[in-house]
């Protein structure tokens, strides 16, 4: 990596690009980072490429980190208690009427649909998680299912959806007594296969219900639901 040759700026730009993209080997990466500390031109080239490429990462579906991450940051910096969880008024997911809406009828539906659609695993019923999400008219629209030990949720539409342009559907877990947890974005047709950080049984533990809200493209900018709730449904173990 000779950066003192006449074609320096071209070579530097190419190296900086590889650095930002991430394809350089560990030693090359370290060397370039070390040079960047003392050579402003190199530092600027790296930063430019990081920003250029960083702008293209916006569409990655958000995954809410565990509360321990913020706790760790707070501890390491010696900051005061609170902060990330503070100043909330009563949000919709804490309201009682939502829970009333998740009636027993949901169980019957879940069971019927679950058996019909998931028959290959119906022989081991206790290992299957099924959620039927319905709108206010109680008509089932989406079916979320997972193996209890599985690392992903499958979402299928059982009725046509109409998602406004420039809007996205975001699926949320509504854990009891806690803030909603973003599970991921659905396609406009309602289908999705959502990877989970641990098994479905663990992720949905203490979570009696799921909901889908309407959000800006790319999902809620705040990590909490910001748009109207379109569908809700109780979590059933079959």
């Amino acid at each position: 990596m000779n950066l003192s040759r006449p074609d320096r700026s071209l070579r530097l730009d190419a190296l900086a690009a590889q650095y930002a993209l991430g394809t350089l080997s560990a030693p090359a990466r370290r060397r370039l980072a070390a040079i960047a500390k003392t050579d402003p031109a190199v530092g600027a080239a790296l930063r430019d490429w990081e920003l250029r490429l960083g702008a293209l990462a916006d569409a990655v579906p958000p995954i809410v980190p565990a509360p321990r991450v913020w706790e760790g940051i707070r501890r390491r910096l010696g900051l005061g208690v609170g902060g990330a969880e503070s100043n909330r008024s009563t949000p919709w997911w804490a309201s009682v009427s939502l829970w009333r809406g998740l009636a027993l009828a949901g169980f019957a539906l879940a069971f019927a649909l679950g058996v019909a659609l998931l028959s290959p695993v119906a022989e081991r019923p206790e290992e299957r998680i099924v959620v039927v999400l319905a709108g206010q008219d109680a008509k089932p629209v989406l079916l979320v299912s997972a193996d209890r030990g599985g690392r992903y949720l499958t979402v299928k539409a059982v009725a046509p959806l109409s998602v406004p342009a420039q809007r996205a559907l975001e699926l949320w877990a509504l854990p009891e007594g806690k803030d909603p947890l973003s599970l991921g974005l659905l396609s406009a047709s309602g289908t999705a296969r959502i990877p989970l950080a641990s098994s479905a049984g663990v992720v949905l533990q203490g979570t009696p219900a799921l909901a889908v809200s309407l959000e800006p493209p790319g999902g809620s900018p705040t990590g909490k639901p910001t748009g109207p709730v379109l569908y809700t449904g109780g979590v059933q173990y079959l």
């Binding site: 991450v69 900051l79 990330a84 999902g219």
Partner: peptide, 19 residues
């Protein structure tokens, strides 16, 4: 400003975590 920092985390951590 600790509150601003906490709010910044709240608004961006899900995206950054996913990346």
């Amino acid at each position: 400003d600790q509150r601003a920092f906490a709010e910044l985390y709240r608004r961006t951590s899900s995206h950054l975590h996913a990346v």
